[in-house]
Design a protein around this nucleic acid. Structure first.
Length: 323
DNA sequence: CCCATTTGACCGTC
DNA sequence: GACGGTCAAATGGG
């Protein structure tokens, strides 16, 4: 996979994702008319879980098809998307509503801290939809393993939820102009639209960011998928997750994102870090994902759970074995 | 002390 | 002038 092009990887990711979900569905026993609550088998999925999986399968294949159908030109796009991470970890942004266009690549604004809006407009832009569901966890390609820094939040006219703005942590040090916007969907609060703009010119994967003196302690990149599924499973079983009408307290804590395409080599574990949130106006609790290099998709979860607690291995992991 | 986040102010575009 | 996007000072956590 190392030498795959960006879009090949994305495509493969989508297919793997869909296949995985399909396998789960396949593995689960056919639904009995009177579903017993027995959770003896992890493969015994609730109807809700199946719906989620189904949705996942469908959307993965849709994404894959879109990629194949995409308007982008792979060759130029390749040039437009320097794999700063040297192919180690794919940049996950996968175009759903739009494909990265081959655009002029910024001439590495050695001076232009104030990137002109015209240039900004020319940056490639694509949107990814990220879905969070309490029982399933993250769905879909949702996270890049880049490090983002939030630089703003705005209430958007007509939108229920504010939009958050992120830029690459290495904007100043490496003149990396990648940005992303995250906005919760009005219609389906479990869906977040992540709009990426620009591509990373930084080299985050290979390099330990010099900004961070140390990579954060307990954050091996490997602690990802189980951590998330267990977390989210635990949320499902123990917490009230409200996905709309959020008011009052919400938490913001980064977790380690699972690159969904590398689900096989992943362990559980991880810790929460409550990074506080006291947005006086509305809310904006975030579960942002974070790795040694960080990143930050957003979820709004209103719950009462000690975010500083370590994830216990005993958490339910209904996806665990099949991943 | 360094870095990330928050949030009001500012700016460009429509 | 409204709106979206960004800046930057203030703040807080580690």
């Amino acid at each position: 996979m190392a030498m795959m092009s960006w879009e090949q990887r994305g495509l493969l990711n989508e297919l793997i994702h869909g296949l995985k979900a399909a396998k789960q569905l396949q593995a689960s026993p056919s639904p009995s008319p009177s579903p017993s609550p027995s959770s003896s088998s992890s493969s015994c999925l609730t109807r809700e879980m199946k719906d989620t999986l189904l949705h996942q399968v469908v959307s993965s294949y849709e994404n894959a098809i879109m990629m194949l159908n995409g308007t982008h030109n792979p060759t130029t796009e390749r040039a437009t998307y320097p794999m700063a991470n040297s192919g180690k970890v794919p940049e996950s942004p996968v175009s759903i509503t739009g494909s990265p266009k081959s655009e002029e690549f910024l001439d590495d604004g050695s001076k232009d801290y104030t990137l002109s809006s015209k240039k900004r407009k020319m940056l490639p832009k694509w949107t990814e939809q990220v879905r969070i569901s309490p029982e399933r966890g993250l769905e879909g390609p949702h996270d890049d393993l880049y490090s983002w820094r939030k630089y703003g939040q705005k209430d958007i006219l007509g939108a229920k939820y504010p939009r958050s703005y992120y830029r690459c942590t290495f904007r100043n040090t490496q003149h990396c102009w990648a940005t992303k916007q995250v906005q919760r969907s009005d219609g389906d609060p479990t869906i977040f639209e992540v709009t990426y703009r620009g591509t990373h010119t930084c080299s985050q994967q290979g390099n330990t960011p010099q900004l961070k003196r140390e990579t954060k302690p307990n954050n091996p990149i490997i602690k990802t998928i189980n951590y998330q599924t267990t977390l989210l499973d635990s949320l499902r079983t123990n917490l009230t997750v409200r996905t709309n009408g959020l008011e009052g307290e919400a938490f913001s804590f980064p977790v380690t994102p699972p690159p969904f395409y590398s689900l096989d080599s992943i362990h559980g574990g991880g810790t929460f870090r409550h990074v506080g949130n006291s947005c006086p106006s509305d809310f904006t609790g975030l579960i942002s994902t974070n790795t040694s290099t960080g990143s930050s998709p957003i979820f709004d979860v209103d719950f009462h759970f000690d975010p500083t607690a370590e994830i216990d291995a005993g958490f339910p992991t209904f996806l665990h074995d099949s991943i």
